[in-house]
């Protein structure tokens, strides 16, 4: 069904290359935050957590929306009330998931020998700001990417998931950076 390996490579390499460039830009920001991580290693441990949850909630939203679009139960427009409702629920799930994980992180890290060395209030502040920044970027992007690829006749599975998970990784780093700047250390 997908032919030989060269066919698969041809089909995917444009999108992968674009995503790779965005990731490297995010990595450049991460690299410039290195000094921060040597003082507060707990923040580096939080990066994969928020990236994964942000990417996953976006992918889940995209997958649900693309099924509904295929079934014809929603219109491909941001104004559709069912899409709105699903986005609100996703915001709730995403923020709760990030909070529960961040609280577990605060308890688990010292057991693994990583210093948290930060007041709980600051930790909660950083988590809250980065969660809100992350979710408010990733969810609209997931919805728009899914609607766009659906209208263009591309499979949303092949398009939304790479786009949203890459954006999740990029925004995870940026949102932690914004949160750290706002809360201060």
């Amino acid at each position: 069904m997908y032919g030989d390996w060269k066919g698969i490579v041809r089909e995917n390499c444009g999108l992968l290359a674009a995503m790779m460039f965005i990731e490297v830009l995010g990595g450049g920001v991460l690299n410039s935050m290195e000094a921060l991580f040597s003082v507060f290693p707990a923040i580096l441990s939080f990066v994969p957590v928020i990236n994964a949850i942000g990417g996953n909630i976006g992918s889940v939203m995209g997958a649900r929306l693309s099924s509904s679009l295929h079934l014809g139960t929603v219109r491909p427009a941001l104004s559709d009330p069912k899409i709105r409702e699903d986005m609100e629920t996703s915001v709730l799930i995403g923020i709760l998931a990030i909070f529960i994980s961040a609280i577990s992180l605060y308890a688990i890290l010292p057991m693994m020998g990583v210093r948290v060395s930060m007041e709980p209030v600051k930790w909660i502040g950083i988590v809250a700001i980065s969660a809100v920044t992350m979710i408010s970027t990733v969810l609209p992007a997931a919805v728009m990417a899914t609607i766009w690829s659906f209208k263009k006749g591309r499979s949303p599975d092949d398009f939304t998931i790479p786009v949203v998970s890459t954006l999740g990784d990029f925004m995870g780093i940026i949102s932690i950076l914004i949160a750290v700047k706002m809360v201060g250390l």
Partner: peptide, 12 residues
Amino acid sequence: LTFLGTIEVFTG
């Protein structure tokens, strides 16, 4: 999502 997120702690 919470479970997978927490697992990522080990990656971190």
